[in-house]
Computed example of a mutant assay.
Amino acid sequence: MSDEAVPFDDRGLAYGDGLFETVLVRDGLPLLWDEHMARLQEGCRRLGIAFPVRRCLDELPAQSGAGLQVLKLLLTRGSGGRGYLPPADAEPRLRWRSAPFVPQPARWADGVRVRLCDLTLGSQPSLAGIKHLNRLENVLARQEWSDPEIAEGLLCDCRGHVIEATSMNLFWFRGGRWETPKLKECGVAGTLRAGLFGVLELHEAMHKQDVLFEAESLWLGNSVQGVWPIASLVDSAGTLLRNWSVPSLDRSLQAEAHALLGYPVPA
Rank of each mutant, 00 (worst) to 15 (best):
E59R: 15
L40Y: 05
L71W: 07
E42K: 10
G48I: 10
L60M: 15
E59P: 09
R54H: 12
L47C: 03
G48D: 09
A66M: 11
I49K: 11
A66Q: 15
R46C: 00
R39K: 01
D58W: 08
D34M: 03
G43V: 06
R55K: 14
G43W: 05
R45H: 09
A50K: 10
M37H: 00
A62L: 11
G48C: 12
R39H: 02
V70H: 04
D34N: 01
A62N: 09
Q63A: 12
L60R: 12
D58G: 10
G67Q: 12
W33F: 07
H36K: 00
V70L: 08
M37I: 00
C44N: 03
G65F: 14
K72F: 08
C56K: 13
Q41G: 11
A50P: 05
K72W: 07
I49F: 11
H36C: 00
E35R: 00
R54K: 12
K72V: 15
M37E: 00
S64P: 10
G65A: 15
P61N: 12
R54D: 05
H36Y: 00
A66W: 08
R46A: 02
H36I: 00
L68H: 04
H36P: 00
C44Y: 06
L57H: 13
P52H: 05
R45N: 04
R55Q: 15
S64T: 15
Q41R: 12
C56E: 10
A62P: 08
S64Y: 07
L68P: 02
C56Y: 09
R55V: 14
A62I: 11
K72E: 12
E35T: 00
G48H: 11
E35H: 03
L60W: 03
P61M: 11
W33Y: 01
V53E: 13
A38L: 02
M37G: 01
C44M: 08
S64N: 07
P52S: 12
V53N: 13
L57E: 13
G48Q: 02
A66V: 14
D58M: 10
G43S: 07
I49M: 15
W33T: 04
R46H: 02
E59I: 14
R45W: 03
Q63W: 05
A38M: 05
G65Q: 13
C56G: 01
H36R: 00
L47F: 06
A62Y: 04
W33G: 03
G67S: 14
R55L: 14
R39E: 01
Q69K: 12
L71A: 10
R46I: 07
G48W: 14
L60F: 12
E42L: 05
D34F: 01
I49W: 05
L40S: 02
G48T: 08
A38C: 03
A62C: 10
Q41H: 06
L71E: 07
H36T: 01
R55N: 11
D58E: 14
L40P: 08
I49N: 10
K72T: 13
C44P: 09
A66Y: 13
P61L: 09
P61H: 05
A66P: 14
A38T: 12
R45T: 05
G43A: 03
A38V: 04
L68Y: 02
H36N: 01
Q63F: 06
R54L: 14
G48N: 09
C44K: 02
Q69N: 07
E59T: 13
Q63I: 05
Q63V: 10
Q41E: 12
L68M: 14
A62R: 12
R45V: 08
P61V: 12
R55A: 15
C56S: 15
